[in-house]
């Protein structure tokens, strides 16, 4: 059995008659930085939720040889921000401490210290006592990211972490990801691979099935992107630079 990371075997997910994912097979080594891209409805979020064992599926998923439910404490998950209820007058500190406070009745000084540390890492340490719903979209995303780090996860699963953020926020989040990616496996769904090219180890092109899987240079080709999106998408390459036309930022 593959023990050094995440192994997905014959994964199929159905919503009634609709097949969201069909026979997906992947081996993700630990640590690595994996970017999953694909058109709307390609099954990207479904893939992430399957890895987390949040939805019923066929096939096998093992993380370090174990079922995801058995090792939840080493997985950090950042869902799409649109799913967060901002109708609650909750403070930033309470958001970051949530994974701890939901488990413990009394929190220790160490928990608070840790929460402050992660807020500092994401550059939000001055917002400790601010209302979460009063923050901008990018700031909220940073706070949620800090919360994801609270359990000190080995595996980070991020669903469109850059959605609704401006270019500067996006770039600082990417820098941050780069910084914390040591010894972690990061699986990230995005519509925009360009700014991530430098830190990406593996790209998964997904359209219900895995269209292509491998290094950026081998995967991001015009042929593959045409298979993925059903239309010709120019790819410009210059040494380390890879630019997919139509995306808003490139490195």
């Amino acid at each position: 059995m593959f023990q050094q990371g995440i192994e997905i075997k014959n994964l199929t997910v159905r919503y009634g008659d609709y097949v969201a994912l069909e026979d997906v097979n992947l081996r993700i080594r630990h640590p690595s930085f994996v970017v999953v891209i694909g058109p709307n409805g390609a099954g990207k979020t479904t893939l992430l939720k399957s890895i987390l064992d949040l939805i019923p599926h066929e096939g096998n998923i093992r993380i370090f040889g174990k079922r995801p439910k058995e090792i939840r404490n080493i997985i950090g998950y950042l869902p799409q921000r649109e799913r967060i209820n901002t109708n609650i007058p909750i403070l930033v500190r309470d958001v970051v401490l949530m994974p701890v406070s939901a488990r413990k009745f009394v929190m220790s000084k160490n928990d608070t210290k840790k929460a402050k540390k992660y807020l500092k890492i994401v550059g939000m340490e001055d917002y400790w006592n601010h209302r979460f719903d009063a923050l901008s979209g990018g700031q909220q995303q940073r706070v949620l990211f800090a919360r994801t780090l609270m359990n000190e996860p080995h595996i980070l699963i991020l669903d469109e972490p850059f959605s609704g953020t401006d270019v500067a926020t996006k770039m600082s989040l990417i820098k941050l990801l780069h910084k914390i990616s040591k010894n972690k496996t990061i699986i990230l769904v995005t519509h925009d691979i360009n700014p991530l090219v430098e830190c990406t180890d593996v790209v998964v092109l997904l359209r219900r099935r895995v269209i292509s899987y491998g290094l950026v240079a081998d995967t991001i080709t015009e042929e593959n992107l045409e298979k993925l999106y059903g239309a010709r998408v120019p790819v410009i390459r210059r040494e380390k630079i890879c630019y997919v036309a139509g995306s808003d930022v490139h490195v």
Binding site: L54, R72, P79, I84, I88, R147
Partner: peptide, 12 residues
């Protein structure tokens, strides 16, 4: 009620 997806991912 704040973040059902993350809660579920944590086993709640």
């Amino acid at each position: 009620i704040f973040d059902p997806d993350s809660a579920e991912a944590m086993g709640i």
